[in-house]
């Protein structure tokens, strides 16, 4: 029983094929990643889902065509997109306010979550006063409180330094185990995809096709040591091979 289902989705920008043929599905409570080289058109896929762009092919949610865009998804963009002029609390309530909730009610809904997101005590701070990791957690908080059917995460940790990114991945995995969000993650980080996902779709370079669907059989909670970790690195090596072989002769392309 898949919630989101894409069938042969294609998108071209003025003669340039960006998405060649994308078919995928995401089940309820499933964490799925789309893994591909940068510039492959991963973000374009989210633009189609959120209704910012229109493409060809079928996009279904719970079996019905996705026509009323934006109702099902809570979208977390690549950079945190926190509004510098709003305090963290008011950034977190943004989605609820847009939905028409009163500011006081929205604040009351969001405030109890600050501790879980490691942001307790920072409600009244401005984004510029927070570190990169905290900003990403605030952005995720703003995303999940919208209580949409599904999360769309567009390289949420791409702008963080390596240490912070690893810490955030562990934190997100733990959060996901508690909440079991239905989530679709875009990333070009193989390790991140393996660490977080139940399934991974591997994309080719542009024009993007799905070259492989991979189940990640690792037990949760995911760990960074022991047998599971060895299994994970074998899987990572395998996926890396697939990606590099799917993009012959242009391994160092600039796009």
């Amino acid at each position: 029983m898949s919630r989101l289902e894409l069938r042969h989705v294609r998108k071209a920008f003025g003669g340039l094929d960006v998405l060649a043929d994308i078919s995928l599905s995401v089940g309820a409570g499933e964490f799925v990643s789309i893994l591909g080289p940068s510039g492959a058109g991963k973000s374009t896929l989210f633009q189609l889902l959120t209704g910012a762009e229109h493409g060809e092919g079928e996009m279904l949610f719970d079996g019905a065509p996705l026509d009323d865009h934006g109702r099902h998804f809570a979208f977390m963009p690549q950079r945190d997109a926190l509004m510098p002029w709003r305090r963290i609390l008011d950034n977190a309530t943004l989605g609820l306010e847009v939905q028409g909730m009163r500011r006081q009610a929205a604040r009351a809904r969001v405030a109890p979550l600050f501790a879980e997101f490691g942001l307790a005590g920072f409600e009244r701070h401005f984004p510029a006063q927070l570190s990169g990791g905290m900003r990403q957690r605030a952005a995720l908080l703003r995303t999940v409180v919208q209580q949409r059917d599904m999360l769309l995460l567009d390289e949420p940790f791409g702008a963080l330094d390596a240490l912070t990114r690893t810490a955030m991945q562990r934190w997100l995995e733990q959060m996901w185990r508690h909440h079991r969000w239905t989530a679709l993650l875009i990333t070009h980080d193989v390790r991140e995809a393996v660490f977080l996902s139940d399934r991974i779709y591997v994309l080719s370079a542009r024009p993007a096709r799905i070259v492989r669907e991979i189940k990640v059989p690792l037990p949760r909670p995911r760990s960074l040591g022991g047998d599971a970790a060895r299994q994970a690195s074998t899987l990572e090596a395998e996926i890396l091979d697939i990606i590099l072989n799917a993009t012959p002769s242009k391994g160092h392309d600039h796009d």
Binding site: T50, A74, Q78, A81, V98
Partner: peptide
């Protein structure tokens, strides 16, 4: 920021809301 606009559209905000917010 373009991403703020995209995010607000995904939240369901219209042009006027995006302008004000």
């Amino acid at each position: 920021e373009a991403e703020i606009g995209q995010m607000l559209r995904a939240m369901g905000a219209g042009r006027w809301r995006i302008f004000v917010l």
